[in-house]
Write a protein that binds this DNA or RNA. Structure first.
Lengths: 222, 222
DNA sequence: GGCCATGTTTTTGTCTACAATCTGGCGAAA
DNA sequence: TTTCGCCAGATTGTAGACAAAAACATGGCC
């Protein structure tokens, strides 16, 4: 059951986490030699790990010139959020139509737990990261579209997480985000697909606006 | 200007074409040794080519067990089209808002050329492949969203092309497809984003329906 | 003083060899 | 006869060395 992962996979997942956490800031060069020194082994698995990162758009590779952690311009970030807005709105609409009653009940339970942890004042950090992502993840899964799931969770979310960590954002007021989440689940429970989509789009739009102001402020300080 | 591509890239692009054309049918095993015999060189570049194919979802790799050309179930194909419907509808809406007048004029010119080639009875095969794809490509580019462009052209279209070649489809009646294209461009020229999106969605929906009937027929014969 | 040519150094691309893992078939025991 | 385990072959994962390309520094020239 231990499922022995290959070295390339281990390096890949460790680097993924490191990049998301900002331990390897955008623009950092990833030379193969450097990875060998850090993880051990030979260059072959390191190359493979870098290629996997490239496939997820976490690094950009230039032939004969190595790989660097992606550094997104504000415009590119907006493009990504624009796509995310569309796809996750779609996921929410489909989830309203396709989720089982059991799944919806679980989602409601999740929000209650979130509400409790916020009321206990410990929600600040918890809700930002794990809670919010778990909520979105369940809805995406509820869409029951494997490709949609792959695109959102496989590609876009890594980038989103990366910029969240770096700006240490998430919604500034977890209370408001929770309220939005509750309305969304309400719409899903009522099988109101169009409303669910609309609410999700607004929710993500708010998230983007929030991220933009933080980035602008960060820019100002720099 | 000759831009010396690496061996891995050459193998990758040749394999991409071969898979799209159905020369390597779904399920075909791609062993590294086999690629060495076919393309020359050593195993390392072949591995890299296979990984690039995996990144584009053209092959599926299982650790220690090799890579096979993807074989999609009908459900998976529907999922892909569902996503394409959404994203390309979005692209069309954005294109209506963002394309320059010049680009729109070029698009209109393209359709006139198509109309002429169809009238000359040579459109049958031409319009199916290059013409249709060119039309969609320009609209996607017109959305001016780089990530959207990458997702549609980089990932989804290879799969779509692959299944088109295999079923030798495209729209059964190029005349009708052209008419739909003309209406879409009309809406874009009027900057009517919502109508443009709606028409594009219908256009792709029709394309999926068409593909489904062809696959069903193919299934029946097999 | 600034700019271009050039040689050195580093890094990537490729090759060959070896180790680990999977696949398929044979034979022995129930 | 069926099923389990084991052995042989093939295939993938990894290692280390060589070749080619790029980045960098140095020195000469304008």
């Amino acid at each position: 059951m231990a499922e022995k992962p290959t070295l390339a996979e281990k390096v890949f997942s460790e680097l993924t986490i490191a990049i998301e956490r900002g331990e390897l800031p955008p623009g950092t060069k990833l030379s193969e030699q450097m990875l060998v020194e850090r993880f051990g082994g030979s260059r072959a698995p390191m190359r493979e790990a870098i290629q996997k990162l490239e496939a997820r758009n976490l690094v950009a590779r230039i032939p004969h010139a190595g790989a660097r952690v992606v550094s997104l311009s504000l415009d590119e970030l907006k493009d990504i959020y624009e796509v995310r807005l569309e796809l996750e709105g779609m996921a929410c609409r489909l989830a309203a139509l396709r989720m089982s009653d059991t799944e919806i009940a679980e989602l409601q339970g999740l929000l209650q737990a979130h509400a409790a942890s916020i009321a206990a004042e410990q929600g600040q950090s918890y809700y930002q990261s794990a809670g919010d992502l778990d909520f979105h993840y369940r809805i995406i899964k509820g869409s029951q579209n494997s490709r949609l799931h792959q695109m959102l969770c496989g590609d876009l979310y890594h980038i989103v997480r990366m910029y969240r960590y770096q700006t240490s954002t998430g919604h500034k007021r977890p209370g408001q985000a929770l309220q939005e989440h509750q309305r969304i689940v309400e719409a899903i429970a009522n099988r109101d697909a169009e409303l669910a989509e609309l609410l999700m789009r607004r929710h993500i739009q708010a998230s983007l606006t929030n991220l933009e102001t933080l980035l602008a402020a960060q820019e100002g300080r720099a």
